[in-house]
Nucleic acid binder design. Sequence first.
DNA 1: TACCAGGTAAAAA
DNA 2: TTTTTACATGGT
Length: 292
Amino acid sequence: MLLSLDRPYDFGLSMRVIRSFGPDRAGQADRLRFAARIHGVPTLVEVSPVPGKAGAVRVSSSPRANPSQLRRAVEWVLVAELPLRPFYRLARKDPRLSAIVRRLHGLKPSRPLSLFEMAVTAITEQQISLAAAHGVRTCLVERFGTRVQDQWLFPEPEVLAKATTSQLLAYGLSHMKAEYIRKLAAKVTDGTFDFEALKTMSDEQARETIMGLKGFGRWSADYILVRGLARPDSVPEDDLGIRSVIGEYLGQGKRLSALGVARKLEPLRPYRGLVAFYLLAAHRLNIARQGI
DNA sequence: TACCAGGTAAAAA
DNA sequence: TTTTTACATGGT
């Protein structure tokens, strides 16, 4: 199946950046492979570029999935509904940001198919390093998840809801984090919490809803908004990585305070999250900051 | 070895 | 109301 996405869009660059963010999507050159549960069937989805056709990608799956379901899944993961042009018009007003954006023309974020996975990822990444958190998730996934060829399907909420605290502790979670995850998994399982509903909420509504969950503070809520929902204006201003990278490219080179981040990003509404994503990408790809 | 790493809730002041 | 503390693993 061929999919034509809103241009400008550089699929290869976007995949390179995603891979540079961590080992989760490690692997094949400029393709995207991920496991998805489609109509309950564990399915491997593969997305590859179409040579000479900017913005077009080829989508296949194994086993063969319903085309409209498959299309919906890929459009979600690749954030198809987000046009870049309005963001570029805004970015041109800041000389330093403008230079970065030119180097990363066509870059879009992508997001996991599952918001439950995103939420659990946020919990694991609280306080400890991304590398440490990745180690913990790997243990969880390989114990409670489902293997689909060379990929893993993230554990279903029902499975984690039934896991015992001592099991979760054995996989590197703290007591508190184990409880957050179990409580969340239970709420999703019994229908008390519906991640799908977040998709139609305003940023503010979604943020408040997530923060109503035990274990999810402001950082986690904004992190889920920007990474899990790809909301272009959301960003955790107190995040260590954000504070460093905004300071590096838009400040004096040193890590800023959360307030400093807020001030630097204020003129970049409604694309503060997308700005942060571009700067993180620039940092990962070793793109030097420009003068002044 | 010690310390920091893309925080949070509960306890203490 | 604001400040302090415990907490899990991985890298340096």
